[in-house]
């Protein structure tokens, strides 16, 4: 087969896959600009005949508070998780060159726990989690949602940062030890600055995950005022009688921030994904 034909087939295949994959986001963008009548009557996949901003205007008013709520929850959660998780990751690193049997047992147990926290279907902890949050009196509060998220995202941060911290040359840590430095200072002055790219990857990863988290805000918020945007969007589901073009505008508004982060800082997100699979090297 001639190279030109091969190359064209190659790009054709990629184009087909891309189009298929982009259909949903295309639908999301396009239908938000249709009038309600048009959304109901015209195909989802066809572009609007005239641009209408009514959907966005209505939805923005309704989603303004949830958007703010999400920001208030996601920003502290992600920064705290990434930073405290990084500290935990360095702790694992120190354990890895300690000499006692006890420390390898501790690191196995703790590491399994943080892996469990990262990958477990967190819906399975629904009942004890709600009970805990209620008994702590923080249901329907920012603190409550943040606390619940931290249970899963601090370990996630620790898992991801473990990958990034493990590539720091051991001799730097040893030199610092010989220089009489305590581990906390080694973390603050050497390990954390040197793992900054990994920290940013972890941060981006957790921001996107926590922003899109649907279940935890679903169960821990009962007052409409405190709803996060990932749940508020759900009120625009189909079901006869509800507004439809609003659905797409709502979906778009809820996704703008994570999508924007993905477009501009996507490589950090991808590095975070790769670290999740256990391979922080050479990315």
């Amino acid at each position: 087969m001639r190279p030109v034909v091969k190359a064209s087939l190659h790009y054709l295949a990629l184009a087909i896959v891309s189009i298929l994959w982009l259909i949903p986001v295309y639908a999301m963008i396009v239908n938000g600009f249709k009038s309600n009548l048009e959304v109901l009557s015209s195909p989802v996949l066809s572009p609007p005949t005239s641009l209408s901003l009514t959907a966005y205007i209505t939805v923005f008013n309704a989603l303004a508070k949830p958007l703010v709520n999400s920001l208030i929850v996601v920003i502290p959660t992600s920064f705290i998780s990434a930073f405290l998780g990084a500290m935990g990751a360095y702790f694992f690193y120190t354990l890895s060159y300690s000499f006692s049997k006890l420390s390898s047992v501790i690191s196995d147990v703790l590491f399994s726990l943080i892996a469990l926290a990262t990958f477990i279907p967190y819906q399975a902890t629904l009942i004890p989690l709600t009970r805990l949050i209620v008994s702590m009196g923080i249901l329907d509060t920012y603190i409550g949602i943040i606390f619940a998220m931290l249970i899963f995202y601090i370990p996630t941060g620790a898992l991801l940062m473990s990958m990034f911290v493990s590539v720091i040359p051991r001799s730097l840590i040893e030199a610092a030890k010989v220089d009489g430095t305590g581990d906390l200072k080694i973390f603050m002055k050497i390990v954390f600055p040197l793992s900054m790219p990994g920290f940013i990857s972890t941060l981006i990863f957790i921001i996107i995950q926590s922003w899109n988290n649907f279940f935890i805000p679903l169960i821990l918020v009962t007052t409409p005022n405190m709803r996060l945007v990932s749940v508020a969007v759900q009120s625009y589901t189909g079901g006869y009688g509800t507004l439809y073009n609003d659905t797409f505008a709502a979906a778009m508004l809820a996704s703008v921030i994570p999508l924007a982060i993905f477009i501009f800082l996507g490589r950090y997100f991808i590095r975070g994904l790769i670290a999740l699979g256990g391979g922080g090297k050479g990315v």
């Binding site: 896959v17 891309s18 994959w21 982009l22 949903p24 986001v25 999301m28 996107i208 922003w211 899109n212 988290n213 649907f214 990932s230 749940v231 969007v233 759900q234 979906a251 809820a254 996704s255 994570p258 999508l259 982060i261 993905f262 477009i263 996507g266 997100f269 991808i270 994904l273």
Partner: peptide, 13 residues
């Protein structure tokens, strides 16, 4: 990015 972007959007959305 085109095949990964679905992960950046909430599954609910």
């Amino acid at each position: 990015s085109i095949i990964i972007y679905p992960l950046a959007i909430s599954m609910a959305v």
